[in-house]
Design a protein around this nucleic acid. Structure first.
Lengths: 135, 135
DNA sequence: TTGGGTGCAAATCTTTTGCAGGTGT
DNA sequence: ACACCTGCAAAAGATTTGCACCCAA
């Protein structure tokens, strides 16, 4: 359809996302790349992340902290947001595909995406909270 | 803790949310109430929705359309976003509690919320799309 | 009376977009 | 050359917040 061209910017943005196990926001990726590529603009980061998402190369995560996170791993899996430190991490759940299928079966519309998100306190932050109380 | 007071505004906002089966945004609730309560301000709607959420009376839904939806029903259930018409609707899934529990069992942190969101095309919009093609 | 609640408007924050110039094909 | 792509900055949208006044307890 649209004849897609190569672009250096798209390559480095894709690469930046691939090299991360956390789930950075557009702003985070921009901040990481900016020192090495001073001409890079935030708009370009947003545009390319959106493009990669539409191509199905990456997925976006809206988990309720007001910013969109991105994930290079498009295999179905869940995410966890720590409401204390703000980190987003992967959750291995093998049920997701089954959840999606069991719902799709009865649904007269079309399902394209199934997101499973957990919110809570991560183990590290929970430890710190307990330590705080003991003081 | 905080000595909560009664407020007419909070009452009508809560009531507005109770009376809806869809999942309005702050802006939607504001628009609905404004004609009858011309002095109501959007900031008050946001403040009270946040308050009610923190009290556990309502839940918020961030499903990826860039706005926060609100739901008076706090019983665990899933949501569906139609990416064509933008409507958010309830999905009855009895698995959610089980998903949450099965994950909580092995997790060393604390889980407060489990959100399951589907995105796709609703039956109505799918029909329209098919009709469009036939033209 | 006292401190939470509200209205109003400005500020903040994230994301999108218009445009002129750059670049892959 | 012909679009697509980028940088830059402004704009758009959603949500938050400061402040003076209001009102429930």
């Amino acid at each position: 359809m649209t004849p897609l061209r190569n672009s250096k910017q798209r390559d480095i943005i894709r690469q930046a996302l691939m090299n991360r196990t956390d789930h950075p926001t557009a702003e985070t990726i921009y901040a990481e790349l900016k020192p090495q590529y001073p001409r890079l603009s935030l708009g370009t980061v947003y545009r390319n992340l959106m493009l990669l998402k539409n191509l199905g190369e990456i997925q976006s995560i809206d988990i309720g902290d007001g910013v969109t996170h991105f994930d290079y791993d498009i295999f179905p899996h869940a995410h966890f947001l720590c409401s204390r430190c703000g980190r987003v991490s992967d959750i291995k759940i093998r049920d997701i595909e089954r959840i999606k299928n069991s719902f799709s079966r009865d649904f007269k519309g079309r399902i394209t995406t199934c997101n499973v998100n957990f919110i809570g306190i991560c183990p590290e932050c929970l430890n710190e909270e307990n330590n705080d109380k003991e003081q």
